[in-house]
Design a protein around this nucleic acid. Structure first.
Lengths: 150, 150
DNA sequence: CTAAAACCTCAAGTTAGGTTGAGGTAAAGT
DNA sequence: ACTTTACCTCAACCTAACTTGAGGTTTTAG
């Protein structure tokens, strides 16, 4: 028996476009919530659909599930997030995206001079000497000294 | 005995800033090449440094190792790639980056209207209805019908 | 009432891009 | 000569974000 105003996992999957297994996964990660019926099956509030939409949108922007979770946790606890709450998240991510775009543009604009020149002089190259705040995973900038005699 | 004009794996690691294990990994993936000395140790042509630089640059642009490998394979076979060859790659990636940036901008610019509005009407939203050529991994756009009565 | 469809849990597998460690060999420094 | 450093292979491990499958229960449709 499924009451109106509550959704089964299959319904949520159909309407959100994510697989049931993904919903389980998101729940395990604390990104969405559900309760159980008598038979131990998940039931969802329709609001979960918006959450999933936001997750998908954020992912398209390159935001990790961990960060999305954090963002969700910054929402007012207890009550269901309202328009203003989502708008606030939106502004945060907008800013982040703008930074990321700027980073990509710097990268792009130095690409020709850097890879394209045929010498790869690294001294002043943003690609190698970027102060990587957005994507700091490597061991930092290293000058390839054997190559920078252009 | 290390001849001049050839590099050991350790030297390459030091000068490129990637770990020895990463060099092994790249070699296994066919991204770089080496030969062996009498004692079965890897020896590299100094040109490998440029290849590694290009790999790192391309990675920063969000290009996967698989695509980088493909790009490398598009280079003239046999001879060592010259300035023009690298420039050609550079142009390809420049174009790709420009597309990616445009995609991010569309995403960013629809963010406020889409998440922020508090209704998430999906009908005309690029975030949900994007013709995902750049990042098509999900099951495509799905309208969240329960939510689009704004 | 029965059979199919949907759901459950838990473990293991997947891809990308590496990293770590064990056990053993080669090269270099003194 | 001997000891340390560098290198070798191979297997296993790591994170992210899921997917797949086995074995079993619940719901729903006819």
């Amino acid at each position: 028996m499924v009451k109106s105003k509550e959704l089964t996992v299959g319904k949520v999957a159909d309407r959100s476009g994510v697989k049931v297994s993904t919903l389980h996964f998101y729940e395990e990660k604390g990104l969405i919530h559900s309760w159980r019926n008598q038979g131990n099956q998940r039931r969802y509030h329709p609001h979960v659909l918006r959450r999933i939409s936001v997750i998908k949108a954020a992912q398209k922007m390159g935001i990790s599930l961990a960060s999305i979770k954090e963002a969700f946790e910054s929402l007012p606890d207890g009550r269901t997030p309202n328009a203003d709450d989502w708008a606030k998240l939106s502004r945060t991510w907008h800013k982040e995206l703008t930074e990321r775009i700027a980073y990509m543009e710097r990268l792009r604009d130095s690409l020709t001079g850097c890879i394209g020149c045929g010498c790869l002089s690294m001294k002043n190259c943003p690609i190698y000497n970027e102060d990587d705040k957005l994507k700091s995973n490597g061991p930092g900038a290293v000058l390839l000294e054997g190559l920078n005699k252009c």
